[in-house]
Amino acid sequence: MKTTTEVRNQLVSMIGSTIKIAQGYENDFDPAKVYNRYIKEITDDTSDVKYPKTFVCIARGEQRRMIAGEINNLLSFLIMHVVKRPDEKTDVQILLDSAMRDFERFFEMNDTLGGFVQTLDLVEFVTDSGFLDPEGVMIMRVTTERFKYGGE
């Protein structure tokens, strides 16, 4: 069974490498701007070149021992995505809507993270609803489930 950080890093890697216009998504994510932890300094850096930025954080882990020695490992991740409108005419919430569609598609199409987990679910999300204009922020909570069987 993959370790927690391996799952996190796979999530980071796949978000950065998969969400591409060439692959049918609406945005091109730069792998260099998908971080494997929350970095406050980068969050508050409003330089245009820093956007869009994505932070993937391990939020919580839980392990349950099931019958017959099976272990169910549940992980929660917070994915924070920050966009900024490039000019006055662009509605930042439309940018955020577009990113949200990409994430939803990503979660649907990659629900095992390439075999690293058994399930991947977007549990809930919040957005800044326009408060942070010209920035837009969306935080998603996703959970993954892994099963470890006897002898694994």
């Binding site: 406050k40 939020a59 919580r60 920035e135």
Partner: peptide, 25 residues
């Protein structure tokens, strides 16, 4: 009213995400 983005994330948005994990985060 919004100072730094990180303040808003920490003070406003995170408390709305999963009550059982937000305090720690």
């Amino acid at each position: 009213v919004i100072g730094r983005t990180s303040d808003y994330i920490a003070q406003v948005m995170l408390p709305e995400i999963g009550q059982h994990i937000n305090e720690l985060i």
